[in-house]
Design a binder for these strands. Sequence first.
DNA 1: GTTCTGAATTGATACATATCAATACACAGA
DNA 2: TCTGTGTATTGATATGTATCAATTCAGAAC
Lengths: 238, 238
Amino acid sequence: MNNAQLAIDNETGHAAGVNDWLGNGQSAQIKMGNSFTTTNERTLDVHEHLFMIGDKQTHLYQILEGVIGIYKMLPDGRRQIVTFYYPGDIIGGGDKSNWTQHAEALCNAKVRCIPASTVDTLITTEPGFGQALLSMLATELEETRDQLLSLGRKSALEKVATFLLRISRRNKREGTEEGLLHLPMKRAEIADYLGLTIETVSRNITKLKTTGIIRLESKSLVSVKDISLLEELADGGC
Amino acid sequence: MNNAQLAIDNETGHAAGVNDWLGNGQSAQIKMGNSFTTTNERTLDVHEHLFMIGDKQTHLYQILEGVIGIYKMLPDGRRQIVTFYYPGDIIGGGDKSNWTQHAEALCNAKVRCIPASTVDTLITTEPGFGQALLSMLATELEETRDQLLSLGRKSALEKVATFLLRISRRNKREGTEEGLLHLPMKRAEIADYLGLTIETVSRNITKLKTTGIIRLESKSLVSVKDISLLEELADGGC
DNA sequence: GTTCTGAATTGATACATATCAATACACAGA
DNA sequence: TCTGTGTATTGATATGTATCAATTCAGAAC
């Protein structure tokens, strides 16, 4: 998760996240007080856009399957992917009325669409929901700042190591194998996320491979052989 | 501002920002319902730290004077400044319990300290305050994502142009001269913000100068001679 | 005024990553 | 199985920025 689970619910002691109100996608209904709102799902093919920059922000989206890439572009075509959203993550939640970047499915994906009006209602009627949103945004800001450190100050090898480590840590949080990393995106998308070229990403993956830190089970499946060496590289060689 | 002024107050039609509740620093009192909370000011010398990474987040800070730089570091000393906070800006507002970066005064500065407990109270008692915080964080996230685009995909010259343009636009918003830019920070700090070295920053400022786009009134005072050329450069040469 | 000191600028060179180009690979369709 | 096509890898070279080094500049202290 991206992640909305930091606001502590004082009564139960469990972490109250945005998903506690929005559900996990099993049900198409969201309970608000004693009324319900119905949500609908949307399926996206690879490369299909969920929204484009400037589009009206009519909904929040909860990722159910697949990965969505959020990106900005320069007029000459240079692209910077600012986030990858994974299942469980929520896109949106700020109060901007229009999207300020593009959102594209990097593989086949499914999202649940939650009307912005529902969110507005939840904020006023459900105590704690606004807090959970705040928490989610704070986490997202924090992760974006980490990415600034990568882009501004790390070498290509360190960037790639950091990227892999981030996936590993997500796996750990989600309870899946932290040493087996599935890369649902292409090298070009990793490059646009790390501020590198395809070739440099490829060369540095190869370097990690020949060093014995990782093994390439396939082009999109990496197994980590030495996680502490990977961490050392990611955190700046010291 | 950084900026908390996007939530629209439906009754007055004016932009409701966090500062509407926290005041502008003239008064040391914050009204909450019919009770008051007293805040205190803190003065910082150049290079003095407001907080360090890991410190307990006991307060929010409202910048009254000067500029505060927020930064992350790698163990070997490489530094990335993630934001500059200016007068009117609020530092904090997420719900993290500890600071995840360092905050240092880049020149003599003054801040107002607002206890975290006061913020918690305001969220529950003052309708709209939570929304304003949400709005502030969303704006901050958006600006950080713009910076990702700069760091990941722009050339040194474009980065410097973007940096200057950002100051110009802040001036415009604040109602001061958009063509006259005061740089309260040193070249080293600009470099650590843009992911460059001091020398590269200096060379590119010189380049903008010899091109006639800017004029250096002094080392820390820039006047913009051709703002549309500066914009063209900043947005990626097209 | 002179001297001192940190900061900024400028120059020469090194180096990391981009660019251009050529395979190699893997999977889909015939 | 073969062929076609998009993707990844690898190689050779170019280039932008970092690094190392030397002035220059501006303000503070005397």
